[in-house]
Amino acid sequence: MQTKDFSGIRNNGPLPSPQEVTVPNDIGDLLADYIESIGSQLENLEGTALAYEAGNNRQANAAKVRRILHKIKGESGMVGIDEMSDFCHQAEDAFEEFSEDKRPDMLLRFKDWACAAIQNMANQMKCN
Protein backbone atom coordinates (compact mmCIF):
# COMPACT_ATOMS: atom_id res chain seq x y z
CA MET A 1 0.00 0.00 0.00
CA GLN A 2 1.29 3.41 -0.99
CA THR A 3 1.85 5.80 1.91
CA LYS A 4 -0.28 8.90 1.67
CA ASP A 5 1.33 12.31 2.12
CA PHE A 6 -0.23 14.30 4.97
CA SER A 7 2.48 16.95 5.16
CA GLY A 8 -0.06 19.45 3.75
CA ILE A 9 -1.34 19.96 7.30
CA ARG A 10 2.07 21.38 8.20
CA ASN A 11 2.59 23.64 5.19
CA ASN A 12 -1.01 24.47 4.30
CA GLY A 13 -0.66 22.31 1.20
CA PRO A 14 -3.16 19.85 -0.28
CA LEU A 15 -4.27 16.76 1.63
CA PRO A 16 -5.29 13.34 0.24
CA SER A 17 -9.00 12.75 -0.16
CA PRO A 18 -10.70 11.74 3.12
CA GLN A 19 -12.79 9.31 1.04
CA GLU A 20 -9.70 7.19 0.41
CA VAL A 21 -8.76 6.20 3.93
CA THR A 22 -8.02 2.47 4.03
CA VAL A 23 -9.93 0.48 6.63
CA PRO A 24 -8.63 -3.03 7.39
CA ASN A 25 -10.93 -5.84 6.26
CA ASP A 26 -10.71 -7.69 9.56
CA ILE A 27 -11.63 -4.71 11.74
CA GLY A 28 -15.07 -6.23 12.46
CA ASP A 29 -17.16 -4.69 15.23
CA LEU A 30 -14.31 -2.39 16.25
CA LEU A 31 -15.19 -0.01 13.40
CA ALA A 32 -18.46 1.13 14.99
CA ASP A 33 -16.67 1.76 18.30
CA TYR A 34 -13.89 3.55 16.45
CA ILE A 35 -16.26 5.87 14.61
CA GLU A 36 -18.08 6.71 17.83
CA SER A 37 -14.91 7.31 19.82
CA ILE A 38 -13.12 9.41 17.18
CA GLY A 39 -16.32 11.37 16.45
CA SER A 40 -16.61 12.34 20.09
CA GLN A 41 -12.94 13.28 20.33
CA LEU A 42 -13.14 15.44 17.21
CA GLU A 43 -16.06 17.35 18.74
CA ASN A 44 -13.95 17.80 21.83
CA LEU A 45 -11.02 18.95 19.69
CA GLU A 46 -13.15 21.56 17.93
CA GLY A 47 -14.35 23.00 21.25
CA THR A 48 -10.83 23.07 22.62
CA ALA A 49 -9.42 24.69 19.46
CA LEU A 50 -12.05 27.45 19.66
CA ALA A 51 -11.34 28.01 23.36
CA TYR A 52 -7.63 28.16 22.54
CA GLU A 53 -8.31 30.70 19.78
CA ALA A 54 -10.32 32.83 22.21
CA GLY A 55 -7.26 32.92 24.44
CA ASN A 56 -8.89 31.17 27.42
CA ASN A 57 -6.47 29.07 29.51
CA ARG A 58 -4.10 28.69 26.58
CA GLN A 59 -1.66 26.40 28.36
CA ALA A 60 -4.36 24.08 29.65
CA ASN A 61 -6.09 23.99 26.27
CA ALA A 62 -2.79 23.29 24.47
CA ALA A 63 -2.26 20.31 26.82
CA LYS A 64 -5.80 19.14 26.08
CA VAL A 65 -5.19 19.38 22.32
CA ARG A 66 -2.04 17.29 22.69
CA ARG A 67 -3.93 14.65 24.69
CA ILE A 68 -6.75 14.45 22.12
CA LEU A 69 -4.41 14.16 19.13
CA HIS A 70 -2.35 11.57 20.99
CA LYS A 71 -5.45 9.55 21.79
CA ILE A 72 -6.79 9.65 18.22
CA LYS A 73 -3.36 8.59 16.98
CA GLY A 74 -3.19 5.70 19.46
CA GLU A 75 -6.71 4.43 18.80
CA SER A 76 -6.29 4.67 15.02
CA GLY A 77 -3.07 2.71 15.22
CA MET A 78 -4.58 0.04 17.48
CA VAL A 79 -7.42 -0.72 15.06
CA GLY A 80 -5.11 -0.59 12.04
CA ILE A 81 -6.33 2.67 10.45
CA ASP A 82 -2.75 3.74 9.87
CA GLU A 83 -3.48 6.69 7.60
CA MET A 84 -5.46 8.44 10.32
CA SER A 85 -2.64 7.66 12.73
CA ASP A 86 -0.09 9.21 10.30
CA PHE A 87 -2.31 12.23 9.84
CA CYS A 88 -2.49 12.75 13.62
CA HIS A 89 1.26 12.45 13.83
CA GLN A 90 1.65 15.22 11.26
CA ALA A 91 -0.92 17.35 13.08
CA GLU A 92 0.95 16.85 16.37
CA ASP A 93 4.15 18.06 14.70
CA ALA A 94 2.32 20.99 13.09
CA PHE A 95 0.90 22.02 16.47
CA GLU A 96 4.40 22.25 17.92
CA GLU A 97 5.82 24.04 14.86
CA PHE A 98 3.06 26.62 14.40
CA SER A 99 2.81 29.95 16.16
CA GLU A 100 -0.09 30.33 18.61
CA ASP A 101 -2.23 32.32 16.16
CA LYS A 102 -1.94 29.72 13.42
CA ARG A 103 -2.68 26.69 15.56
CA PRO A 104 -6.50 26.95 15.73
CA ASP A 105 -6.94 27.01 11.91
CA MET A 106 -4.68 24.00 11.54
CA LEU A 107 -6.67 22.12 14.19
CA LEU A 108 -10.00 22.97 12.56
CA ARG A 109 -8.67 21.85 9.18
CA PHE A 110 -7.52 18.60 10.80
CA LYS A 111 -10.92 18.16 12.43
CA ASP A 112 -12.84 18.79 9.17
CA TRP A 113 -10.71 16.29 7.27
CA ALA A 114 -10.94 13.63 9.99
CA CYS A 115 -14.73 14.15 10.35
CA ALA A 116 -15.14 13.66 6.60
CA ALA A 117 -13.06 10.49 6.76
CA ILE A 118 -15.09 9.15 9.70
CA GLN A 119 -18.36 10.02 7.97
CA ASN A 120 -17.20 8.16 4.89
CA MET A 121 -16.35 5.11 7.01
CA ALA A 122 -19.79 5.26 8.64
CA ASN A 123 -21.46 5.39 5.22
CA GLN A 124 -19.40 2.45 3.98
CA MET A 125 -20.30 0.48 7.09
CA LYS A 126 -24.03 1.09 6.51
CA CYS A 127 -23.69 -0.11 2.89
CA ASN A 128 -21.99 -3.32 4.03
Binding site: G28, D33, S37, K71, M78, V79
Partner: peptide
Protein backbone atom coordinates in the same frame (compact mmCIF):
# COMPACT_ATOMS: atom_id res chain seq x y z
CA UNK B 1 -5.90 2.14 29.21
CA UNK B 2 -8.23 5.14 29.30
CA UNK B 3 -9.53 4.26 25.84
CA UNK B 4 -12.21 1.57 25.91
CA UNK B 5 -11.62 1.14 22.17
CA UNK B 6 -7.93 0.41 22.75
CA UNK B 7 -8.76 -2.05 25.52
CA UNK B 8 -11.17 -3.80 23.18
CA UNK B 9 -8.58 -3.84 20.38
CA UNK B 10 -5.93 -5.29 22.71
CA UNK B 11 -8.35 -7.99 23.91
CA UNK B 12 -9.17 -8.80 20.31
Amino acid sequence: DDSSLTRKAIKR
